[in-house]
Write a protein that binds this DNA or RNA. Structure first.
Length: 202
DNA sequence: CGAGTGATCAGCT
DNA sequence: GCTGATCACTCGA
């Protein structure tokens, strides 16, 4: 299997993210088609990246070779997945934000009883992690050599370039001007853009 | 509808 | 201590 994004340079992470739209991700009996992704650069120019301040115990996977998972916990209760890009030592990554479940629907529904519809099953980064059944044990595992719980497959049908839209990343306080969020235009599994709002004080 | 908020924790400052 | 690459639920209009 040839993964073009596996060998792409770190500075091309935005293109890599765009190219990942339409790919299939499979884990623990559920397969979903990526409809929304975001790029995060690890070259020190991207304050929104978890790797911006250099390697730590938490973000170590991002500094490893491409094709591994970077999972992190946020707000205490939710987890999000990234696929690491770029060569070892350069911490670029693509955040998987939303997907359309195309196989293992029953399993996906069982994992997310709160979903309002099938389109809502993986309509958000934490929801996607939940539907795929990923947890901390998936941290740092490979999606390309079959050793980890998750695998990736090229799109059965390529995504038409005119259907790809770009815009500012969600929930990011800095670097609003960088349009590094990519999604498939009109896809019902893509959540509406919400600008970052600071939590209200009491 | 939309705005507000609770849940809950690792990693920086 | 504070702050977040979040989600789901509750209000009030």
């Amino acid at each position: 299997m040839n993964y073009p994004w596996l060998t792409a340079p770190a500075e091309a992470v935005a293109d890599t993210a765009r190219d990942l739209l339409g790919w299939l991700v499979s884990a623990h009996g559920v397969t979903a088609r990526l409809t929304e992704v975001e790029a995060y650069s690890g070259l020190g120019q991207d304050p929104a990246s978890h790797a911006h301040r250099g390697p730590t115990a938490r973000n170590a996977a991002m500094f490893g070779p491409a094709g591994r998972l970077y999972l992190y916990r946020i707000y205490g209760m939710h987890s999000c997945v990234n696929v690491v890009c770029g060569p070892e030592g350069q911490a670029s990554a693509v955040l998987l934000r939303a997907a359309e479940v195309i196989d293992g629907l029953a399993t996906a529904r069982a994992r997310r009883p709160a979903a309002r519809s099938d389109h809502d099953l993986a309509a958000g980064p934490a929801k996607l992690v939940q539907v795929l059944g990923l947890d901390a044990s998936a941290y740092g595992t490979s999606v390309v050599d079959g050793s980890g719980p998750m695998t990736m497959t090229p799109p059965p049908v390529p995504v038409a370039p005119e259907l790809i839209e770009a815009g500012p990343r969600v929930g990011v306080t800095s670097a609003h001007e960088v349009p590094w969020r990519f999604w498939i235009k009109g896809d019902p599994t893509v959540s509406a853009y919400r600008r970052h709002v600071r939590r209200a004080r009491r």
